[in-house]
Design a protein around this nucleic acid. Sequence first.
DNA 1: CCGATTCACTGATCCGTTTCAGTGAAACGC
DNA 2: GCGTTTCACTGAAACGGATCAGTGAATCGG
Lengths: 327, 327
Amino acid sequence: MAQRKRATIREVAQATGLSPAAVSYALRGMQVSEETILRVRQAAAELGYEADPIARALASGRTGMIGLLCGSLEDLWQQSLAVGIGRSLREKDRYALILDAAGDPARERTLALQLRDQRVDGLIVQPVDPAARFWADLADSLPVVAIGDALQNGHTAAEVVFDNRRGVTMALEYLREKGHRRVAVLTPTRPSTPDRPADVHVIAEAERLGLDIEVTTARQGLADSAGVASEILSRADRPSAMFCFSDSIAYGVYKAAAELGLSVPGDVAVMGYDDHPMSELLGLTTVNWDLDGIVRAAVRLVVAASDGKTRRRRIVQAPDLRERVSV
Amino acid sequence: MAQRKRATIREVAQATGLSPAAVSYALRGMQVSEETILRVRQAAAELGYEADPIARALASGRTGMIGLLCGSLEDLWQQSLAVGIGRSLREKDRYALILDAAGDPARERTLALQLRDQRVDGLIVQPVDPAARFWADLADSLPVVAIGDALQNGHTAAEVVFDNRRGVTMALEYLREKGHRRVAVLTPTRPSTPDRPADVHVIAEAERLGLDIEVTTARQGLADSAGVASEILSRADRPSAMFCFSDSIAYGVYKAAAELGLSVPGDVAVMGYDDHPMSELLGLTTVNWDLDGIVRAAVRLVVAASDGKTRRRRIVQAPDLRERVSV
DNA sequence: CCGATTCACTGATCCGTTTCAGTGAAACGC
DNA sequence: GCGTTTCACTGAAACGGATCAGTGAATCGG
């Protein structure tokens, strides 16, 4: 850890006979002559000068970091999303600060506030509790882009919302079409407030389709969701189908079914939600979202917003059904 | 984005009648009276004061951020690792800056250097090319903890190495025991330098056991690895077993096998490496590493090293075989 | 040819902390 | 009772850039 001290802007100034201010401008290509820019660039290269991001952040108020607050990184699909967003942000010369709310609204609040205190230039959030009050304050002090569900308080800079009504309808209609009448719905653990649009819609649609449903919450982890599924599947009057609100939860159902010696779809049908790559392997019929499109949209919107280009936008993602063999 | 300006240390100083320096010390519990600490804390709470991490970083030289440079985040197991390390670092009040080398040595170099320029307090790296020269420079200017393979140049602050020799031996002996003689080995794409210890060991062990092997590289993604596997499996004289150097690659083999109408293990045996949660579901026999242990060790070591407690350590992880049904 | 612009650059200040080198007073040793 | 420590705190100088209000020279319009 020898720490050969890095060059400062002042040394570059000295080397070129310019003022530090001129060097600062030159390096960012502002109001200096073409020739000076070249001269400065060369001197900087020779000295191995690279502007210190910390000092730059202090002076300019911008850190180049975007917070990404995930609902639950136990969910493999959300992991893919996070990886994609991280990569995409790096391509735009930003760093992603990825945090995991782990399905807990309180933790979500804490982390969101910490991210703000950490001075991120913007925040992408996949809200656990879109109705929480603090979003208003947060959206007031930095650009927030919501993914999945729109935030109910405070105006976000932009939103990439999923048409969950359509997704739910697709899934339930498909189950009904395949002859299922009694279906267990497994949703990720949620805040106690039960007015989540998607959940409300599940109940409404089930009624419309004459489906007998039962909603249970489960954590995203394989072991947890398998435990919950196992309890349901081992009942004598078990439902004929399980509709899981994330593929990861569906994987848990597969696990539980395997342990109970039940076959999918022979003994129980499974419907997923999200379409993680592994689902193709397992033959899980699921509702697909355009992951790449979501990544690109979210990144584009948060970067634009953090640059002050504040065209407030709402992008709606449409689902499509990936019909495989699990139903 | 109203940006109600946050309180500064000067305002707290004013409110308490102390100097900014005293407030700074008080908040960190250094050389001030107990009573003053209490008074400062209360004033800070009232003003909603929270030290600006940027200014703090500039003055102290410490950012509280740890870089995590993954070999390839297309690999699901590495995703789990990254999620675990991120969570664990947050518990220790650090932020993880997660980057993905995507199996590319050049990219690994670029990102590692960028991470240093970003002023992370330490770096955890799962090296793609442990023999690269730049590690020496890097390890000179910040504490580096290597996971998986030890870095061959420059002394890292610490290492959490996998006993890959043992893992490889276990896997190959098991395959041999199950009657396989011709096995295809699929390893993640690597730098052209072929002196990777694990790879060398595979060849040596295969010879010792009288195994006829053939080594091919594949990217970690499902589609890519399936493509490579498909090419091998569709040959008339296909091997009887595939040994994949990561579970994600093994998943690709499953996909290829399914597409070709081959059954696992009936037509082809598959052996994985890493033991991702999904492997249990698929019945993939694989070599398991203690993920939690690795996470804890890496985080503990990098945090200690970044705090200057520089007890240089090398922790060796032992594998164990998860015998399931794929062989 | 003279006043107004534009251009290329400078000097100073600021961003909000930490930290170093004190400083005065109290406590201590003998 | 006098020098030495310790204690609790202060003032000022970093840290390394960005930015604002100039400034002198060249360019421009008429």
